[in-house]
Design a protein around this nucleic acid. Structure first.
Lengths: 232, 232
DNA sequence: TCATATGTTAACGATAGGTTAAATTAATTA
DNA sequence: TAATTAATTTAACCTATCGTTAACATATGA
């Protein structure tokens, strides 16, 4: 139930990055470390984080640019900037772009921990109340991913299990398009191995059974790639 | 609806306090200035604020003590500390006690503005729950959460216990929608662990018993997520 | 054709929830 | 202040739900 919180840490100084990652690990966070903005964005798209800690000055893609891209995908994710410079314009730019906090290096690691806690706490309510997209319509189905309800025409709704629910949502987010295996595995199962993969296949079968009332909806396999929900 | 946000500013240095108040006023906030912790607490009880900005070092009652008292009344209100000293222990103490941010004097006023904005943005959603609504009608029930009265049709009303009352209110604020376990636990029980969770289940059972006279009202469980009161 | 990927079902263990009653704590009242 | 009552927590026992895994079947592509 109380999973560890996942942090994306983007820091180009490898020594500092690794030390900080280990420190956060020791304090019960799951940390993914990326060593530049490019890599940071790739990791961000691939996994699902609760908070991002970004260095401002990095080669290829600086922290500000990265935040812009991140916020396009998820505008609610909290951001903490780390920076060596403390120019007023930079600080303001950071806040303007949607940062939640700003730490000047060198900073005290305990302070960082508390800032993380404070921010996650603040964000907890809004994530609990989570107002975004839960309602999907496809063919003759109505699907509410918040209530985990699937309804066909005027039938009574069926209840979906959490995994069924997430998987269906993910398929629908890629409706008529490939939903890569890997994506569902890393997002829903948070691990990509033989067993999670088989587990996912079981859930695909369960979903197919739920959807078979409607001949216009199919979940097709794309061998070695993933699945595709075709509809409408 | 789009009222100005109200700030409680507690600052013992009168010159600085007035300047800061005026600055915030100019930036479209309603500010109440108190010149020490005592007065701050009086003002806090008297009015309703969106955010508190507190000096740490003050005569009579310091910022930490004041926060303790404030959080007893409203644990969700965001707090920003202002301080001249930047001792690590003080900063940590601030966060531990529930501060949302910490500004070291002298600070840049624009930075303060952005911090306020960032924090209010995060807290926006929680205001959904800060309703003073206390009369509810659902199906054949009338419920007054101020009096803790629940009435079915023309029957005499039943009196609910404080916890029953809060839980029912919370369910009704989310009528026909998910009321997350975590939300009730953090807001009513102020803690989220095995025992509070079981305690909540007991209260759900009590409420179900109260509501069972009416076949059109149900409290459904959404496994692992929370409860949903369906009605009307 | 053979290794690998996927389809499907069923069984099992783990955890969440339903409910009642006893035990504990808090609030009232004598 | 002691006695009484109300409110809440904890324990106990039971059921429902969920996810994983094993087992066996079929499909795919080199």
């Amino acid at each position: 139930m109380n999973d560890k919180k996942r942090i994306l840490l983007v820091e180009d100084d490898p020594n500092f990055g690794i030390i900080l990652r280990d420190f956060l690990n020791m304090n019960d966070y799951d940390v993914v470390l990326a060593k530049n903005g490019m890599e940071g964005f790739e990791k961000f798209k691939k996994y699902d984080f609760h908070i991002c800690i970004l260095d401002v000055m990095m080669p290829y893609k600086d922290g500000f640019t990265l935040v812009g891209e991140i916020k396009e995908i998820n505008q609610d994710i909290p951001i903490i900037f780390l920076t060596a410079k403390s120019l007023k314009e930079d600080v303001l730019k950071g806040y303007k772009i949607g940062a939640d906090d700003y730490l000047k290096k060198p900073f005290d690691s305990d302070v960082l921990l508390y800032k993380i806690k404070a921010i996650l706490k603040r964000n907890k309510l809004s994530s609990i109340l989570d107002t975004d997209e839960h309602e999907f319509k496809f063919s003759s189905f109505e699907f509410n991913s918040k209530l985990r309800h699937l309804k066909f025409k005027d039938n009574k709704h069926t209840k979906l299990s959490p995994k069924e629910n997430m998987l269906l949502k993910m398929l629908l987010l890629h409706k008529n398009d490939l939903m890569p295996r890997e994506l569902a595995l890393t997002r829903i199962w948070r691990d990509d191995n033989y067993f999670t993969s088989r587990s996912m296949d079981v859930y695909i079968a369960k979903l197919r059974k739920q959807l078979e009332i409607d001949p216009n909806v199919k979940i097709n396999n794309i061998h070695g790639e993933g699945f595709r929900l075709v509809s409408d």
